[in-house]
Design a binder for these strands. Structure first.
Length: 893
RNA sequence: GGGCGAAUAGCUCAGCUGGGAGAGCAUCGGCCUUACAAGCCGAGGGUCACAGGUUCGAGCCCUGUUUCGCCCACCA
């Protein structure tokens, strides 16, 4: 690579390239020291609050967190600048099973299990782990620039939050909304705990369908039943058939001899059975299958558990006791085959439930568990969404939400693990009395015994996270924070936890606070790799946010995430885009560097732009009008959660209007001897740059803060600057129209130059033919501006004849004529003219059709009709010139 | 089996209440021109998946089809 010419060092205080690593570190430390993120509570101001979706304390920042927190920070910084009472509550989730697994793995390296330690010591060990490693993700969020109020960081196992959990449990229990019962649950034999329905993932799995032959008890025949899990036959307590299935009516009084067990089981008649499936007969294992459990309830069947909590066959399995369930399956199949009870085995694909934490095949089994009756709570949540008290963005999720809430089942909230909120229920050892209290009771209120035993189960982690929006604000105390910040403004999260978490927060908030937990829910997409694949460690396509930050800078990474965050689509992360936005950040940096060179010895008072904007020079009027349009667009996009538009509005304005046109245009003034013009340019330049920095600050906090500090004047942090308000006085359609003409002329002349391969250093002679006197005068006025942007000697005339050897173009009503003897690619030009002519003719036919259509004329709004007329006129003029040019060029052939 | 979403330039995607098809990247050509070669200037590139319909007018609304993706669901 060629060395670039060194720039004159005395002119620049800023390095040529933006050095993000040092800047980010320095400013984040500064913000923390200044407590810039602390919430304020001032009466009379609007409140804006967000509670962070608490990452698992075991978590390591992944790209989903990065997206999630960038969007939250964007809104938080925006509202903070707007002057709202702004609070962003950070924190982590104790993540029961996940954390317990992590610590158990650690113990395993010491050849220990949690049982070796005992419950108390184990929990101490988890806390110790949390002290040591639990801050990882929090520190990573800080690298992202997150402006959370860190002094309010919470943990779901905090004392305060634990109190809230117990309080809620007791209230719901006393209202009859929490109950304990022996029901079928999803059991993870590895995690050794019950799981909620939505903690089970169903993978399509290639398995086998075993057809088992069960003989009738009277020896008169047999029935074939099909199962994917033959080992459960040991727990069969019936065979079920459809009540209308005449094939089996005679079995009503006979019964079935269950192979391998010597037991005789009844035949029951149940509508659940599909007559068409297999033989229409279904083996019923009420203790190990959810459907069979229901059938068992209806027919009062015995529930025979044949496995223990580890998935090992128990005493009820007879000679199979002690075998693992999968080993048992093999043995059973072998034995059935030997004894002639195996009819056939077919390959079969079916959904197998697996633990979402450890992917172990879940065993449905009956067990004593605690449940929440969710129906009444769910109804409130549905009503809140239906009534618009909670708005979901994008609203395509409404229907899915309703469907899920319709079918919701009671929520199993007890878990047989150690790490978590222990259920606040005690049983009296003497009389069996059940006590559910916030604080541990001393004596049994029924018999006075002190032999009380607390429930060993802990609560589902989602139980405590369901309370997060109010528990973090101090509930059940009546705090100032609750008063100011509840309901929170918006919840930003990924759609995959809409039901795990969002719905449950709605239920709990509405029930306990009698108020929605948040007004809006913004569900962002899942981040995938650039091929649309889910990122996973095993695939090796994971993009690590910290690597992005180190390579491209936090601002560039944040800008990328923002630009990708369009509503309602998966996000395909492409590293090249990050690099692209790094260039954009650098572009901004250099624009600021250029500005700073002119502003460093700026006169006092120059920062205040008090003059009538319409009295300014054209380019200034134009850029201020564009600034205003950008302010309006950015604010609308932020208010509507159209994050990608926040990014693109800034990108387009900064690069393609401010840098490409404005900075180039005002260079003449900045280097001019005309002090008034120079001062005006400096003042407007500063104003525009300030607005850009403020508009971009929510997305790119570091670079904007760094540049802000370099601008003239005594400046505190940009974080506390007011966010730009729309400036109606800057709106200037007239200036925009004139600039559009001038930019068109400049681009047109540049195109002519390039296509004729005129050397960049050479000047061309150009004649601008403009019949309209007023517009001619405009062109005359800004001729020097045009000439500064394109090397050309301009002549502006009312009429003229285009010489044969000239290149010709039309910009609005201005003809550009450039004589270029011998430089014209005649064939190429003609080809383009043919294409252009065809296009114009096609358009004209289309418009003529419309304008001669009575229905169009009577139905279309006047503005649309007028627009069509204007277009027709413009196209006709273009077509005329195109034909002229064609004829002229043909002479040159 | 239900539900949802997607299909627009070579790639990744915008396109909001229907009114002359856009961006970034990539490609091609030219340039170190006093912020930036991490840059500047210019160019090419589209049957908006397909088939119907509504409308004066459809990328956008309706119906159907195809192909992909996701979620939910008890068919053993």
């Amino acid at each position: 690579m060629k060395d670039t010419a060194p720039s004159s060092p005395e002119k620049y205080d800023l390095p040529k390239a933006y050095e993000f690593a040092e800047v980010e570190q320095r400013w984040y430390t500064h913000w923390l020291e200044q407590k810039s993120f602390s919430a304020r509570m001032e009466d009379g101001k609007p409140s804006f609050s967000i509670v962070i979706p608490p990452p698992n304390v075991t978590g390591v920042l992944h790209i989903g967190h990065a997206l999630n927190n960038t969007l939250q920070d964007l809104l938080i910084r925006y509202h903070r600048m707007k002057g709202d009472n702004t609070l962003w509550v950070p924190g982590t989730d104790h993540a029961g099973i996940a954390t317990q697994n992590v610590v158990e793995r650690q113990l395993a390296t010491e050849q220990l299990t949690r049982h070796d330690l005992g419950r108390e010591k184990f929990i101490e060990r988890v806390w110790a782990w949390r002290e040591e490693k639990g801050g990882t993700i929090i520190n990573q969020l800080k690298r992202m620039g997150a402006s959370c109020d860190w002094e309010r960081e919470r943990f779901t196992m905090d004392e305060g939050l634990s109190t809230a959990v117990r309080e809620v449990f007791v209230r719901l229990f006393k209202e009859g909304l929490i109950y304990k019962g022996d029901y079928i649950v999803n059991w993870c034999p590895r995690c050794h705990t019950a799981l909620a329905d939505d903690e089970v993932e169903h993978d399509p799995t290639d398995g086998k369908l075993y057809h088992l032959r069960y003989p009738y008890a009277d020896g008169s025949g047999s029935v074939v039943v099909a199962t994917t899990r033959p080992e459960t036959m040991l727990g069969d307590t019936a065979v079920a058939v459809h009540p209308d299935d005449e094939r089996y009516h005679h079995l009503k009084t006979i019964g079935i001899n269950l192979p391998l067990t010597g037991r005789t089981i009844p035949v029951v008649f149940d509508h659940h059975v599909q007559r068409e499936f297999g033989t229409g007969a279904l083996k019923v294992t009420p203790a190990h299958d959810r459907d069979d459990y229901e059938i068992g309830l209806r027919h009062n069947l015995e529930r025979l558990k044949v496995m223990d909590d580890y998935g090992v066959m128990n005493a009820a399995a007879g000679k199979y006791a002690g075998l693992d369930r999968f080993a048992c399956r093999k043995q059973i199949v072998k034995d059935l085959e030997e004894q002639g009870f195996l009819d056939k085995i077919e390959p079969y694909q079916h959904a197998v439930g697996k633990c979402y934490r450890c992917a172990t095949v879940v065993e449905p089994t009956t067990s004593k568990q605690w449940f929440v009756s969710v129906r009444p709570l769910a109804d409130k949540a549905v009503a809140a969404v239906e009534q618009g008290r909670i708005k979901i963005y994008p609203n395509t999720w409404d229907r899915t939400f309703y469907a899920w809430m319709e079918n919701i089942r009671d929520w199993c909230i007890s878990r047989q693990i150690w790490w978590g909120h222990r259920i606040p229920a005690w049983t009296c050892g003497a009389c069996g009395e059940l006590m559910v209290e916030v604080n541990a009771p001393d004596v049994c209120p029924s018999c006075g015994s002190t032999d009380l035993h607390q429930e060993t189960d802990v609560l589902d982690t989602w139980f405590s996270s369901a309370l997060w929006p109010f528990s973090t604000l101090g509930w059940p105390e009546k705090t100032k924070e609750l008063e100011f910040f509840y309901p929170t403004s918006v919840l930003i999260t990924s759609f995959d936890i809409l039901f795990f978490w969002v719905a449950r927060m709605m239920m709990m908030g509405l029930h306990l606070m009698d108020e929605v937990p948040f007004h809006d829910v913004y569900l962002h997409a899942l981040v995938r790799d650039k091929f649309g694949k889910k990122m996973s460690k095993s695939t090796g396509n994971v993009i690590d946010p910290l690597v992005m930050i180190e390579q491209y800078g936090t601002d560039a990474f944040r800008f990328t995430l923002t630009a990708f965050a369009a509503q309602g689509r998966e996000i395909r992360m492409d590293e090249e885009r990050v690099d692209g936005y790094r260039r954009f950040i650098n572009k901004l940096w250099n624009a600021a560097r250029f500005a700073q060179m002119h502003l460093k010895e700026v006169e006092p008072g120059i920062t205040a732009l008090t003059a009538d904007p319409k009295a300014l020079a054209l380019a200034h009027r134009w850029i201020l009008s564009r600034v205003n349009a950008t302010i309006v667009a950015v604010r609308a996009a932020l208010d509507g959660y159209n994050f990608n538009e926040v990014a693109s509005a800034n990108y387009q304005f900064v690069w393609h209007e401010f840098c490409d046109w404005y900075l180039e245009w005002i260079k003449a003034d900045l280097f001019s001897q005309d002090v008034a013009a120079q001062q005006q340019a400096k003042a407007v330049l500063l104003t525009v740059l300030e607005n850009i920095l403020k508009l971009m600050h929510p997305i790119t906090p570091f670079v904007t803060e760094e540049i802000w500090g370099q601008l003239p004047g005594n400046r505190s942090s940009i974080m506390v600057e007011p966010f730009p308000e729309p400036m109606a006085v800057w709106d200037d359609p007239e200036a925009e129209a004139v600039m559009q003409l001038l930019m068109g002329v400049i681009s047109g002349l540049r195109t002519i130059r390039t296509e004729a391969e005129v050397h960049p250093g050479a000047k061309i002679d150009a004649t601008l033919i403009c019949p309209d006197a007023a517009r001619r005068e405009l062109l005359q006025t800004y001729a020097s501006g045009i000439q500064a942007m394109v090397r050309a000697n301009l002549q502006i005339v009312a009429t003229g004849i285009v010489p044969d050897d000239a290149v010709h173009a039309l910009v609005q009503d201005v003809e550009l004529v450039v004589p270029l003897k011998g430089l014209i690619d005649v064939a190429g030009e003609l080809e383009k003219l043919v294409k252009e002519k065809a296009r114009l003719e096609k358009e004209l036919v289309r418009i003529a059709g419309k304008l001669s259509n009575d229905k169009f004329m009577s139905n279309a709004p006047e503005a649309v009709v007028q627009k069509e007329r204007d277009k027709a006129a413009e196209f006709r003029a273009h077509l005329e010139k195109t034909i002229e040019s064609t004829e002229r060029l043909q002479k040159l052939r």
